[in-house]
Nucleic acid binder design. Sequence first.
DNA 1: CCGAGCATTTCACTCAGTGAAAATAAAAAG
DNA 2: CTTTTTATTTTCACTGAGTGAAATGCTCGG
Lengths: 264, 264
Amino acid sequence: MVKPIQALARGLTVVNAINNAAGPVSLADLHRVTGIDRATLLRILTTLGQEGWVYRGMGDRLYRLTYKLHELGGQVQIRDAMAQVAAPVLERLQQQLHWPCDISVFDGDSMAIIETSRSRSPFVLNREVIDYRPSMLKSAIGRAYLAYCDDRLRTTILRRLSEQGGEEGRLAKDSVYIERMLSEVRERGYGVRDPSIKSLPSDTEEEFRAIALPILVKGEVQACLSFVWMKSAYPDPDIDQVFYAKLRPGAEELAQLFEQHQLY
Amino acid sequence: MVKPIQALARGLTVVNAINNAAGPVSLADLHRVTGIDRATLLRILTTLGQEGWVYRGMGDRLYRLTYKLHELGGQVQIRDAMAQVAAPVLERLQQQLHWPCDISVFDGDSMAIIETSRSRSPFVLNREVIDYRPSMLKSAIGRAYLAYCDDRLRTTILRRLSEQGGEEGRLAKDSVYIERMLSEVRERGYGVRDPSIKSLPSDTEEEFRAIALPILVKGEVQACLSFVWMKSAYPDPDIDQVFYAKLRPGAEELAQLFEQHQLY
DNA sequence: CCGAGCATTTCACTCAGTGAAAATAAAAAG
DNA sequence: CTTTTTATTTTCACTGAGTGAAATGCTCGG
């Protein structure tokens, strides 16, 4: 196990303390709050100052966080934040269900998988899942997204798909196919992968099934929670119902978390 | 002199490195960029992880900054940021002119002094200047702000002032007085303190004079740069012209800095 | 002028941070 | 599938860096 660095941890504690305080703080304030010796505090603050993290007002000589932190936080992508918030939930679901789950968002013209519990799964399927873009019309996540997204957005997506050739383009124009597929998803509450495709490049030997649930924040799909398993492991043809029942609370929890953190 | 803490500085360097990188980074990436030993890096990353500063994607096992930094940066006030950015300029002006300067912003109904070089001045006037609210109509900074602010805002401010009693209320209703005062400020390019008032509580023994320049970012006053001196030290009655000439580049530099950092 | 509270400096001790190297794990090549 | 290469993690011994007690210096209020 890796032993953490106390000196660093203390420094971060001080940054937090300054941040949590109502306003600018004095050294004595920080001493009271953190319990760290004044001499040590002074050295920590000097270091933070040199690195441009805290700043000392000339007038009152009190410590404040610098504008640098604005710039730091600004770089963090909403997508990263979603992945971070979702990770513990994914892990829990994975432990319950023994198969990996993914979180994906719509990005431009297709779904992007932003986080997965696959690396912790005893069944390693594919390590490069992240950023793999599955079919919008046949994958479970694509279907789930389309079924719950805004009408205007769906129209736009389908138009773009139909402009590009191939089977994807052909299906996008087939309004009967689309409508039936969408209403099936809405009726069930989750998207199911078209059995004819193998959503991941590695799905060569075994047959996999997948379902995906929309994560609805304030009535809008912000992401999809998907789940994959090996068909041969379960004889029951209605096994997806069982998985759905267990995944649904997870999807709702994720929706709440996203709402809390304003990730939409 | 205080010896900075290396262990902390390195940790902060790592945070910067992760932030500056294009995307998520591996341990090896960080080793290349920072030159810190892999073992040490691992411990730093573990510490940062425990404190909730960096996060490791489950899928790709790469390091990213957490959403926490968003929250940290969010707390930093624009006002603090202005004070920080302005401080070095104030200090330089102070060294050139040997009298203190202040930066103030309009806040609600009056001007708030947010930073001052007074503590470094050989002439200590008053240590509690910060947050002292001088008269809007007679102080140099109040006048400078009124003269350059948006017409609608000026009307609102004057209306509010006239609603409150006292001399301030009486003057606010005196449109002849107001108009003459404002056009004088605009003609000169700076506000001058009404000699009848003592803008700071401590101005009891000596007579002080003060001038204030608007800091115009994209045509709008975002703050005022003010300058105070003891009248008795300079026999020349036109000394304010001299000071103005030296302060003006400072005000323009501040305007540029504020624009760069988007502090408006 | 003195005393209380706060900031800063000094200093000795020891333990925590460090980097070389080895072991393990994961990819890539053959 | 096996070998080679590359990346990650663990181990460990050394010492210099971080630590807190105490002393000093500074600022303000009475």
